[in-house]
């Protein structure tokens, strides 16, 4: 900002921005607060914001009733597993597209993106039946496989845009220095692309963590991640809002915190590098 802005104007903008931001954030904050209330206080009218008896009881009960850590572990396995598998397949492909482009490269990228446009519901039935026949229903392996495929186009795209920013000269230098293709990727490309790869991983973990179509439809209990764990609280078996809040808080906290620390990379990643 080259120009100075009067303090009064600045304060006005600040007040407005904070009001809107807090309004947007409020449902999350409210969930967080409610998770520490007793069930009675949770539905009290008028609602109390800070002055209630804080309790950790809800967290205990949630863990006991529906085994939070079991589902959390599933979420971790699914999101990190699919990200890792996706990277393994996508890094070579993105290398090829960025550093050895052909006339078809753009078309292949567009085609990959277009597979994301394919509504998952269009292939739900066969995938469900195949998974049933292959005994992959309600297994972590099955979910990892599905989420890898679901997010692969995004991983390839993101890596491609990051790799394209790496000067080809440096890879050629490695080749002149006697590096094989594998060594070139391992010792030169990958370390240079670490920020890009990190932000790709991050976004992918978040997308996989929050993916709710496949995780809900292909799991029952054993492999159910947090999305399904929370959905089980939707059944109208009375108003257990405090417990619901505790469960929600636990389901979103890991990814929320991860996202806060990396929001810049996250946003840049999601635009496929189209917005700097």
């Amino acid at each position: 900002m080259a120009r100075t802005v009067s303090t009064r104007r600045r304060l006005a903008f600040t007040a407005l921005a904070w009001t809107i931001a807090l309004a947007l954030f409020f449902p999350i904050l409210w969930t967080f607060l409610t998770s520490f209330k007793s069930e009675g206080a949770a539905i009290a009218n008028p609602p109390s914001f800070l002055f209630f008896d804080w309790t950790l009881e809800n967290y205990h009960e949630v863990q006991e009733r529906s085994n939070y850590f079991h589902h959390m572990w599933n979420s971790v396995v699914i999101s990190f597993g699919s990200t890792f598998l996706g990277l393994l397949i996508a890094v070579p492909a993105a290398w090829a597209m960025a550093f050895s482009p052909t006339k078809n490269t753009k078309n292949i990228l567009m085609w990959m993106l277009s597979t994301k446009m394919l509504p998952p519901v269009g292939v739900l039935v066969p995938i469900y039946l195949l998974f049933r026949d292959w005994a992959l229903l309600d297994t972590l392996a099955g979910l990892v496989l599905v989420l890898t495929m679901v997010n692969l186009p995004i991983i390839v795209w993101m890596l491609y845009t990051y790799f394209k920013e790496i000067p080809g000269d440096i890879l050629e230098a490695a080749r002149m220095d006697g590096a094989s293709l594998g060594q070139e990727i391992l010792y030169v490309l990958t370390p240079m692309a670490v920020p890009g790869i990190a932000s790709t991983c991050l976004l992918n973990v978040i997308l996989a963590w929050n993916e709710a179509f496949w995780t809900l439809n292909l799991t029952a209990a054993k492999a159910a991640p947090l999305t399904a764990f929370i959905a089980s609280y939707s059944s109208p078996e009375g108003l257990f809002w405090a417990k619901l809040s505790a469960a929600s808080t636990m389901a979103i906290a890991p990814i929320l915190i991860l996202g806060w620390f990396s929001q810049r990379q996250l946003v840049r990643g999601l635009t496929f590098g189209a917005v700097k």
Binding site: P167, D169, I170, E172, A173, A174, M176, D177, P191
Partner: peptide, 10 residues
């Protein structure tokens, strides 16, 4: 061996 215009250092 080659020396590049951009130096191409790692």
């Amino acid at each position: 061996s080659m020396v590049f215009q951009s130096y191409a250092l790692y």
